[in-house]
Amino acid sequence: MSKMLSVENLSISFRTDEGVITPVQGVTFSVESGRTLGLVGESGSGKSISTKALMQLLPGSAVLGADSRMTYTDKSGKEIALGHMKHGSKELRRIRGGEIGMIFQEPMASFSPVYTIGNQMMEAIMLHRGLKKREAREYAIEMLNKVGISNAAARVDQYPHELSGGMRQRAMIALTLSAGPALLIADEPTTALDVTIQAQVLDLMRDLQRELGMGMIFITHDLGVIAQIADDVAVMYLGTIVERGPAKEVIRNPQHPYTQGLLDAIPSLDHLHDRLKPVPGDIPSPTARPKGCPFHTRCAQAISGTCDVQEPQETSPLPGRAVRCWLHETKSRSAA
């Protein structure tokens, strides 16, 4: 398994009327081929923006940090620096879709309502696979079959509004995969679906990923979904990754107080009569990012004089794990 994407020190700022805000700050992560990285966090934690930067989908007012590096190794093994390609260039068009595919939360908003499903799929197939129109159509039907859409030969000529929510999301997956991406970014793909349909779509994505050996970034706010699909997980809070590591280990033994809080807040069927334990306080607004550790305003274990002054660096309390928290930094220092 090779590292296909490495993001280092990614910072994104926006110029707004109220001054510069920085919703993503110093984010570092990597994706290996054949593995799934889960990005979790509350709304406003910067999970979507970070991945949009990879595809250069940010609005014009966004500024990338000077030392931000996003390196992608394409199918032929060539290293490409993302984020600085010319808009409309051939290179960017090849990356978008052909190398990195993206699935969004609301499939109705991502499909064009005025073209048939098949039409939209064929466009991608002809562009990225260089097939002729008739072959492209056959390939589209094959892909629809693969994602479990029954009667694909008829569905291919239907419009997006004729499909149900679950079907549409399957069609979206088929569309994205038909361009043959090596890396798939899925931004809350199951959030709008019923649990039964969500389970089907998660099974499907897991199977397809295994079959095609793709790397995947899976964005969600649901740690339950992470446990089902991700190999590794990165927990984001206010634009910073506070903890990362193998998904199972992080969920079983969280090291950062925020991760612990998130896990405790999930209602469990096994503790029906206990009170739920929310993370205290509200998520601060991006214009008023707290000084020091961004989480110290809501953290029960905050050390005054340390956490509210200086931002903690990433440390590794356990092998394969990384945490940004003064609790661990002081521990590791006193041990050394």
Binding site: T196, I197, Q198, A199, A227
Partner: peptide, 25 residues
């Protein structure tokens, strides 16, 4: 039972036999 077994739990060792519903409502 099918609805219950479709809930994604944050417990990686969740242990009961799930049944997957085919198709949609």
């Amino acid at each position: 039972h099918a609805l219950l077994s479709a809930i994604p739990t944050a417990d990686p060792d969740a242990g009961f036999e799930p049944i997957r519903l085919q198709g949609e409502i």
